[in-house]
Computed example of a mutant assay.
Amino acid sequence: MKMRSFGVATSWLAASVAAAALIAVPTAKAQEDFPTKPVEMTILFGGTAQTIGQLLADLMSKELGQPVVPVSRTGGGGAIGYSHVHSTRPDGYNIVWNSNSISSGYHQGNLPFNYEAFEPIARVTVEVPALAVRADSGWESLSDMVEAVKSGETKLKMGASGQGSFTDLTAKALFQELGIEDKVVYVPYGDGKAPVELLAGRVDAAIQWPGQFIPHVQSGDLKMLCVTGSERVEVIDDVPTCAEAGAGDLDITMWRGLAAPEGTPQEVVEKLQEAARKAAESDQLKDASGKLGFEISFMDAQEFGELIAKDDEVIAELLKSGN
């Protein structure tokens, strides 16, 4: 009886091993041949984030030999897009054009998962927010605006692309640094609408990516007072940093990159990483960076993962302290 039982168990084990081997071979082959169908890239925001993401998807398509299809899933400070990608299979066919928003969203309670729910693929660009006002506002510098706000009876109407968004947090950190946070009222608008709202007079100031403001600055309708990073942005190097303009040691920069659901095979991540690297080295992306005001700053998956973890700690501490 014992021998018969052992024989059944042995047969079952052998069958299981054989079945596992049959499954493993096609899985390994699928990873080796990746991609064999289109890859979907979720884009979380409008404006320059969408423009850059669409160009990146096109450039990566040429490297991968399969279409990389950009799909806009905006809303909730990135929560809608992150949630979608998080729910997909970890096979490399669903990726997200991500940013620091993964940490700000999680630590504000908008996401039930943090950055560890994704495999980093590569950082591609960095962007520095800019503060802009109408050219006819009479404010030639940041100090002009601060002085007017402090002495005025009405509050500064500040455009906000969404509560808890990266630019919203940047604005609040800037005004706290300037000591005028109690004299600011936030007026919500949709992604990419900052110039429209400024030009229409519905808001007095807005913080967004330089690429949204540059055409209107060139036409003489808007003026950028400062950028929030520690260094000036090359394409608008006549615009001072906010720290240079009197905002203490403010230094806020957004990175953008690619990530896939946790558990995506390493071989697949590496193929996506190399396609992103080739795109970052292309003349097309370099030309776009000069026009839109972002900087190409490639990091491979390992370096990018370390950066995300480090930034997550900083963002968590900032939000905890109320900054």
Rank of each mutant, 00 (worst) to 15 (best):
G305A: 06
F304W: 09
F304N: 04
N110L: 12
Y115W: 12
I207W: 03
L22G: 14
K29S: 13
A276C: 10
D58A: 14
Q208T: 11
V25Y: 13
I121F: 04
G78M: 07
G65C: 09
A171T: 08
T48A: 04
M158F: 11
E234I: 07
D136E: 15
G138I: 08
A245P: 01
G190K: 13
A135D: 10
D182W: 01
D221Y: 06
I80E: 11
A205Q: 08
V149P: 03
A18D: 00
E313Q: 13
S99M: 06
V146A: 01
K320A: 15
K150A: 10
T170Q: 08
Y93G: 06
A15I: 15
F175Q: 04
S141R: 06
T167E: 10
V39P: 01
T36I: 11
A15V: 15
M60R: 06
P26V: 09
I43L: 14
S83F: 05
S87W: 09
L111P: 02
E127Q: 14
F118D: 05
T74L: 09
A280P: 02
R134G: 07
R134L: 10
L250R: 01
P26K: 13
A15P: 00
T88K: 13
T51C: 00
E234F: 00
K2S: 12
G138Q: 10
E63D: 14
T27I: 11
R89V: 11
R4D: 14
A24L: 13
E262N: 08
A206W: 02
F213I: 03
R73T: 11
E116C: 00
